[in-house]
Design a protein around this nucleic acid. Structure first.
Lengths: 335, 335
DNA sequence: TTGAAAGCGGTACCAA
DNA sequence: TTGGTACCGCTTTCAA
């Protein structure tokens, strides 16, 4: 017979108080480092705390203090396993750690339902604020909570239907710069590989490509656009397909790190014509060591995280004030 | 003059009850989807909930339910921005999401003090369990909490001074396999680049290198070992230095992803002699496209996450039972 | 310096 | 089907 011995429940303040022969309130004072306790009493209580393995219960404490301050921030990103999301998370962690914040994190996978569900979960847990890399088209479902004082900062994507602070990369400008780089190299037929067109960021990058071509007096040929690409394999296949066109591109702009990797894989295949030049959005480790050299538009993810943390803390300190939109410039890294 | 208008506090169940003209308990029933409420009343309450923007307060609920179930898991990894940690996190997320768990995440940066501080923080927040990629040498400071029923699973590193479940990679075996691969290629002087020797994982990998050499009847020359390496640059410099030895290595085993990248950078430099063959622990994206082809020991991070989640849930369901140690095999990917 | 009692936002038990 | 009351673990107020 297996007996599942329930471990003894954790000691509470009351138990510490009883064991130390003092009142509950005195224990509270000691645990919170408040003054007004005789040194001898304080020592006695601390000994019992140690002895009973007492651990402060933040939930109960927060509840009683009432002030809606859990010192937790909810962070919803696309995919924690993706380098971009992971680095953003890390930079948020660094920017908030010293003030004692803890991060509740989750991945959305471009799923709007998951976003709403997780946002609700975070709110139920009374996070002090929310950093959101939205998967949904519109975030108006958050309006009531924002009105109720929940600080929200959208990152990477501009909020729609909701007036909150946000931090984005200059997607259009970055893509334009990358495309112009290819134009300067004499390319006239430049393909574009993009993510789901439902993602604002993806649309902005497509727009940058279009702007660069138009400004150069070229037609933005729709036949050279492949979007809705989400994986390395899809990008690879798309590029190979483009190269088999009657009038194939001589260069390609890959609008996301995963897609750039896909292009580089495609270049290893038997190509029907000359090797196209690749420029990608997002730098990827080791790419600087690869032949052919691939120029990239690099985003300063750490700056995005820092800015988001700053905006959040400002709202945390004082609700109100106009909504802010920080645009972090993208840098062209020519290789 | 700036007025910081405090937003109205969130509506409570009591307020919903008053507004709906029912008792507090009835609202609780509706919110929790409990039976025993007339359809008309339920609808009325739901309307008021919507109207007042009521949001359930999990903290208060958990407190009253008492059962120590916050449905939150604390995950402490080395560095969220590192690919390995990020993928582990993601696989833990996937494995626990369906059961409604939320992840509290933080990076330790090999800092034992930070580990203790963050563990305390997690416990104060009453996480249901802890996944720990330890930075500390010994985890005995957790003994009281484990005895009190806190499920802890150590990942990547075997716990010391604490009897808890753990999931590790076969570091020694993986490194041995990688080193044997180099021996088969005829190499006799094989260098080893490793992380801080205080990290058990790093020591195990060094041991694998040693075992392979000894088994081949060779001396494990300490002059060919460089450890304490933490960055790409440090690994690069270390390899270049080794290659300038009077009797330089003809091959090198890099014991971590960052160090392998460093080696690949070194190969781009002006080398004093022939190019050494590199084998690395951890696969890195794009490495398969690089020349020279680099063989790697690949770890199944997702399997580690799944196993950790499984062990955790087992403890969550029923405390007790013998401590388990899952070893995930490492795979040699020959290129 | 110390403690008793009330209450934070909910849930459980039992009575109506 | 509904509601009153006690209470989860802690902090606050105020009195001793």
């Amino acid at each position: 017979m297996t007996i599942h011995q329930q471990p003894p429940p954790r000691a509470t303040m009351r138990e510490v108080a009883t064991a130390a022969g003092v009142s509950l309130k005195t224990v509270s004072r000691v645990v919170n480092g408040e003054p007004g306790v005789r040194e001898a009493v304080r020592r006695k209580v601390e000994a019992v705390v140690e002895d009973l393995g007492y651990r402060h219960h933040r939930g109960a404490s927060d509840l009683r203090r009432g002030g809606q301050r859990t010192r937790a921030i909810g962070v919803l990103v696309q995919d924690i396993a993706n380098d971009y999301s992971a680095r953003l998370l890390r930079s948020l962690e660094d920017a908030t750690r010293e003030r004692g914040f803890v991060l509740l994190t989750a991945s959305l996978d471009e799923d709007a339902d998951r976003e709403r569900q997780l946002v609700a979960e975070m709110i139920a847990r009374r996070v002090d604020g929310l950093v959101l890399m939205a998967a949904s088209e519109r975030q108006d479902y958050l309006a009531a909570d924002v009105r109720a004082g929940l600080p929200v900062v959208c990152v990477d994507r501009v909020p729609r239907g909701l007036a909150v602070d946000c931090v984005t990369i200059d997607n259009t400008g970055g893509t334009r710069a990358g495309t112009e780089h290819l134009l300067r190299h004499g390319h006239r037929r430049i393909a574009f590989l993009g993510d789901l067109p439902t993602i604002p960021t993806a649309r902005e990058r497509l727009e940058g490509w279009r702007q660069a071509l138009t400004a150069a007096g070229l037609e933005a040929d729709p036949a050279l656009v492949r979007d809705g690409l989400r994986t390395v394999g899809a990008a690879r296949d798309a590029l190979l397909e483009l190269l088999r066109l009657p009038d194939p591109p001589t260069a390609v702009f890959a609008a996301r790190n995963v897609l750039t990797v896909g292009c580089l894989h495609a270049l290893r295949e038997e190509l029907p014509g000359p090797q196209p030049e690749v420029v990608g959005f997002d730098d990827v480790e080791l790419m600087d060591l690869l032949e052919p050299r691939t120029t990239v538009v690099r985003q300063d993810v750490e700056a995005v995280g820092r800015a988001a943390a700053e905006l959040l803390e400002r709202r945390l300190a004082a609700h109100g004030g106009p909504v802010q939109h920080v645009v972090v410039p993208a840098e062209l890294v020519v290789r």
